[in-house]
Each structure stands twice: as C-alpha cells, then as structure tokens.
Amino acid sequence: MDIPSDDIARFVAATAPEPDDLAREMDYYAEAEGFPHVGPEVGGLLRMLARMVDARRVFEFGSGFGYSAYWWAQALPDDGQVVLTEFDADELDQAREFLTRGGVDHLASYEHGDALDAIERYDGPFDCVLVDHQKHRYREAFEAVRPKLAPGAVVVADNAMTAGPIEFDKLLEMVADEESDPDDVNEHTQGIYDYLHAVRNDDDFETVVLPVGEGIAVSYYLG
C-alpha cells in the first residue's frame, strides 16, 4: 500500500517524543517568530542518540535560540557540556534564558560568532555534533570537527533533504547519479551534496539519511 508522504509526516509527528512544557514553549516561540527549528521529532532523536552513545560533550554548528541544545542537554550528565554557537547575539541571549529556565545552563558554553572559529578553540573529544548552520559550509564544518571526535561519536546534519533554499529535485539527481551535473545548482543545494558526498565516502563513518523533519544525515564514527 502506498502511503501519502503527508500522512507519513503526520504519523512521525504524532509518534514523536512528547516535549516538556519548556520545549513546547520554544516550539510556540519558533512558530511566532517564523524561526526554523528542528522540532520535537528531531529533538527527541538527538536526545536518544546522545543517550545511546553515553555522550558527555556536544558541539553545535549553529544553535539559534537553543532548541536543539535543550534536547541534547537532557541526555548529558551533570558534568557534561554542550557548546552553542550563533552569529546572532540576541538569539544566543534567548538560548541562555531558555536553558537557564530549563535547569541546564550549567552544561552550556555559549560562543557568539562564527562556529568554524569557535571549534578551533576546543580540543574535543566530542561525542555528538550537530551541523545546522550555513549549508554551503557544512563540509567545512565536518572537516573541522572530524579530528576532534570521540570513537563512536555521532554527527548529525540537519536539512539533509530540504529547507527553504534547497532544490530537492536537483539534490536527488546529484546523489542518485554522481555523474549528474544539473544546471544552475544554488550554493545551498551544492553544499548539502558536498557534505553528503564527504561523509558517505569516508570509510571511517557509516551514514544514513532519515526523512525526519527536513531530513537529517546521521553519521557514526567508527574510529
């Protein structure tokens, strides 16, 4: 039986982990502000992945107002760490406020500015990484964090299938046939393809793309 894609999305949303009151408030905030965020379907998966690898340290390339960091933090021990990075100082202040109210601010390190500059200030090892910043810089983020991963770490890239500027038809053509070269591919779509090509062809990683949210690529580090 063919199930319509809209029904699949509704089913996944309906069976996602129930957000707590603060996460629900953050969902409302994102909707009111028109701010893209991963939502509880992906948030719950991030929390589960962190628990599965007994994560202690998390690094985020792009944190917005702290939504994904809040889900990660729920799985960390009291001496754990989640590093948030964000260009927008107001969003980072909002993240600090939310995480403080959620009782996990003591786990958070806040980095205002370029995530690729911030990662250079940390030695690692990191057990979980979220790549969710400028799409054309995803591969650069992967290359920057790769030597700082703990064995068994997971790297999650958001928007692996779609987002506002991503041309899914062209992305599909490129990943389905690596000899394909669609005309006029924008830098966001090219960036996602370059990232997927890098992680899928790295022998030290196993990667799957899950159609959750706007698509997430989950890569497990075998090193």
Rank of each mutant, 00 (worst) to 15 (best):
V42H: 07
D202R: 15
Y220D: 05
E173F: 01
A115G: 15
F87M: 08
D78F: 12
P151L: 03
P19I: 05
E140C: 04
T15R: 14
G66P: 09
V212D: 02
G191D: 01
V154C: 05
A144T: 04
A16H: 14
I3P: 06
Q81S: 02
L92P: 01
E33R: 15
Y110T: 00
D181H: 12
E97R: 13
P182W: 06
D204Q: 14
G113A: 07
G62I: 07
V209C: 13
P151R: 13
R96D: 10
I192L: 04
A16P: 14
D6G: 13
C128P: 07
P125H: 14
V131K: 09
R137G: 04
D114V: 12
R56M: 04
A9V: 14
V58Q: 10
E214S: 10
V185S: 05
E140L: 05
V12N: 01
N201C: 07
V83M: 11
D194T: 13
A69G: 05
A23K: 09
G124N: 09
E167R: 14
S219M: 11
A69R: 01
E86C: 05
K148I: 03
T85N: 04
D184T: 08
R146V: 02
Y220V: 15
G44R: 09
E214H: 13
G64Q: 00
I192P: 00
V38P: 08
L130F: 12
E18P: 03
N186S: 10
F35Q: 12
L172G: 05
S63H: 12
P125Y: 10
P19H: 08
G124V: 12
R51W: 03
G124H: 10
K170C: 07
I3K: 02
G64I: 06
Y70Q: 10
E206W: 11
R96W: 03
V82A: 00
L130W: 04
E140A: 15
E91G: 07
V155H: 07
D181T: 12
A16L: 15
F59K: 08
A55W: 00
F98R: 00
V42K: 07
F59Q: 05
Y138R: 04
E178A: 13
D21L: 15
M26Y: 08
I192Q: 02
S180Y: 13
G152Q: 00
V82N: 03
G102H: 01
L84D: 04
S68K: 01
Y138K: 01
L22R: 11
E31P: 03
Q190Y: 06
D93M: 11
G113N: 02
D20Q: 10
D54C: 13
D6N: 11
L222V: 04
K148P: 09
P147H: 09
P17M: 14
V154A: 03
R10I: 09
G213K: 02
G66R: 02
Y29L: 10
L22T: 11
D184Q: 03
T162S: 14
A95P: 00
Y193S: 11
P125D: 06
D123M: 08
F35M: 12
Q81A: 07
F65E: 01
T207I: 02
G215Y: 10
A163V: 01
V155T: 05
E91M: 13
G102K: 02
D169R: 12
L172V: 06
S180H: 08
R57M: 04
D6P: 04
V212H: 10
V58H: 02
R146L: 11
A75R: 06
D105H: 13
P4Y: 02
F205C: 02
D177A: 08
A14G: 13
E111C: 12
Y220A: 13
Q94S: 11
A176G: 15
A14N: 15
E143M: 12
